[in-house]
Simulated assay, not measured.
Amino acid sequence: MVTTRTGGREGSVVVVVGLVLALLAGALHVYIFVLESLLWTTPRARAVFGTTEAEAAATRQLAYNQGFYNLFLAVLAVLGVVLAFAGVTVVGTTLVVAGCGSMVAAALVLLTSDRSKQRAALTQMAFALLALIALALSVVV
């Protein structure tokens, strides 16, 4: 069982909630990877990102690269969760915080660079931010 410094049961429940939220953040970023790197020019991906066929064709290489950034963030978060549940809590938590923190930072960049992408940025940020909040709360509970 994953526990906090105090070893309290309440803290461990909050940690588990944070780790589950990190898994959800990772799953969302794998989905984004699939859309950007594998399906970018398909009607489904174009509908999600609001691009035309011509725009998708012109930005395919950029989206492919960006998709892999999302995959790498997901790997950090998911690997961190696996390690935390395996008892390697310091390394696991560090990876979760790095992955989820980067997801939040990337969403803030999207939000501040293009207000029309507010919904996408908040969606991208939600699970990761909640995971970070839960993990931070687990230290004080």
Rank of each mutant, 00 (worst) to 15 (best):
M1F: 07
M1G: 15
V2T: 08
V2S: 05
T3V: 14
R5N: 13
R5E: 14
R5A: 14
T6R: 15
G8H: 14
G8D: 13
G8N: 14
G8C: 08
R9W: 15
E10W: 14
G11L: 05
G11K: 12
S12Y: 02
S12F: 02
S12L: 04
V13F: 05
V16N: 08
V17E: 02
G18M: 06
L19H: 07
V20K: 00
V20I: 08
V20F: 03
L21K: 00
L21W: 00
L23T: 11
L23Y: 02
L24H: 00
L24K: 08
A25Y: 04
A25M: 09
A25D: 04
G26D: 02
G26M: 05
L28S: 07
Y31F: 13
I32Y: 05
I32S: 06
I32T: 07
F33D: 03
F33M: 10
V34T: 12
V34H: 09
E36Y: 10
S37V: 06
L38A: 12
L38V: 14
L38N: 10
L38C: 10
L39S: 11
T42Y: 04
P43A: 15
A45H: 01
A47E: 11
V48H: 06
F49K: 02
F49W: 09
G50D: 03
T51S: 09
T52S: 13
A54K: 06
A54S: 15
A56Y: 00
A56M: 00
A57T: 12
A58Q: 10
T59S: 14
R60F: 11
R60V: 13
Q61K: 15
N65H: 13
Q66M: 10
Q66P: 11
G67P: 06
F68C: 13
L73V: 10
L73S: 10
A74M: 08
A74P: 03
A74I: 04
A74L: 04
A74V: 05
V75A: 10
V75F: 14
A77D: 06
L79S: 12
L79P: 01
L79H: 07
G80Y: 06
V82I: 12
V82Q: 07
L83T: 06
A84H: 06
A84T: 10
A84N: 03
F85N: 09
F85K: 04
G87K: 01
V88L: 14
T89W: 11
V90P: 07
V91E: 13
V91I: 15
G92E: 02
T93A: 12
T94V: 14
V96Q: 03
V97S: 00
G99R: 11
C100Y: 03
C100L: 08
V104T: 02
V104P: 00
A105E: 11
A107F: 06
A107I: 04
L108F: 14
L108H: 05
V109A: 08
V109D: 12
V109Q: 12
L110P: 02
L110H: 09
L111I: 03
L111R: 00
T112F: 15
D114V: 07
D114K: 03
D114T: 04
R115P: 02
S116N: 08
S116H: 06
S116G: 05
K117D: 13
Q118N: 10
A120F: 11
A121S: 04
A126G: 07
A126V: 03
F127Y: 08
F127G: 00
A128Q: 06
L129N: 04
L129H: 03
L130V: 08
A131E: 02
L135R: 06
A136H: 07
L137P: 00
S138L: 10
V141S: 11
